[in-house]
Design a protein around this nucleic acid. Sequence first.
RNA 1: GGCGACGUGGUGAAGUGGCUUAACACGGAGGUCUGCAAAACCUCUAUUCACCGGUUCGAAUCCGGUCGUCGCCUCCA
Length: 471
Amino acid sequence: MDGIRLMDTLTGDVRPLVPLEPGHVRIYSCGPTVYGPAHIGNFRSFLFADLLVRHLRWRGLRVTWVMNVTDIDDKIIRGAASEGVGIDVLAERWLERFLADADTLRMTRPDVLPRATGHIAEMTALIETLLERGNAYRTPDGSIFFRISSWPAYGRLARLDPDQLRVGERVEADEYGKDDVRDFAVWKGPRGSEPSWDTAIGPGRPGWHIECSAMSMAHLGQSFDIHTGGVDLVFPHHEDEIAQSEAATGRSFVGTWLHCAHLQMAGSKMAKSTGNIAGVDDVVASGISPRALRYALIAVHYRQGLDAGDASLQAAAGAVDRLDTLLAALAAYEQAGPDDPDLPGVLQAARAGFGDALDDDLNASAALASLFDLVRDVNRRLAARALSSADTGRVRDLLRDLDRVLAILPDADDRLDADLERLLADRSAARAAHDWAGSDRLRDALARQGITVEDTRDGQRWRRAKIGDHA
RNA sequence: GGCGACGUGGUGAAGUGGCUUAACACGGAGGUCUGCAAAACCUCUAUUCACCGGUUCGAAUCCGGUCGUCGCCUCCA
């Protein structure tokens, strides 16, 4: 093991992660714009950050994770106006929904979820500095733009030559007056009935990019370790963040830029603008459990495109079921014999393989391979009756340990309600009486309620069904 | 038009110079076990890594070309 290595978008190489403060990693993730429900493509990028955070913590590092919430932007303004409510009402509603979906997918709650509207002062302070330093200028309508020509490094992150940028023919009315069409707004002057803040730099509202610069620096400092987002944010969003942040502070902004590839659906990018989307609720309604969805979203390397087709979701459900089955088997197994002398080595090797894979730029596929190698090995030992009852606890402990990173196993305290418990007890009794017809009837009844029951020499065992019910 | 990523079995996907005639998962075929079922385990399911050429003792892995897919090039994770 030679530490955690990550692929930095800016330099294009894989480098060891060296936190600015030893033992403490500061991470900023571009979060949701709360004007509607986030789709599972959005969640892929959030879950990839979650996986990173969980792995770093599993490695014993302290992590401060900040994810912004954009609660003021054109779409929110438009949506609120069409409903005749304030932007705060709309934002609050969709933020709640975002958090609920995030919980469903077992995303770690970020340490801070700063909102743009709560950081106007930080943004205007940053803009003032940019004005003072000559990196930004005002236009007649009260807007303020960042001057790209004042920042020679512009385009480095996206590997774009500013002179080659194909500038759109459409120029928004409010953007007339820019010195250069490529310049971007850090502050938008007041317009009609749009929300506006009275600030030291004048009335108006913030541009999108400045939000992330201000909020990340407010909560993590002028320089921090990792910034994550989807590849579509590389340009212009993150490019602009770097320019305005470094121009304002004179310091390096971010140590490592991490970008995850798009989730695709039917061969093309999942995006709200194309309507080619599926929400967490849509997938769950189709019978895929949240745990299986999480598995599908994190099982493929984050820089690899991923198609959320039915086949991959079904495969994920199958893989999760294999883990559930092992847990159920461990719980049901009883063997008084001596401990398996080989087990400690097997467990240690699995943990090492798992951790090493994730250290290597978060290679989740390889980490899962290590986990499933362990699953087969343990199943073999269970079948051979080589393990003791105490050994099953050791295996379970390791699975739970690895699951601190994966978060795909059933809850440790998952219990059936009383009615189902009774059906299980009845079935056990029927079997004891060799009442096979009754036993089969009860098994069917349980299956209809989403519980799979299986018989072993240690008695019956149960687990949640793969498809359908996922309480 | 510019820039970038990628192309591995029935499917998803790891591997990026010899340990790999290719991990792991899903699926399929056969077998063991079992009241039945399921699960699990065992065997089989790519002599081959888009195609062509080259470098090398040796390539899925490096180089060149061709074809194809996807993404970015102003607010989309």
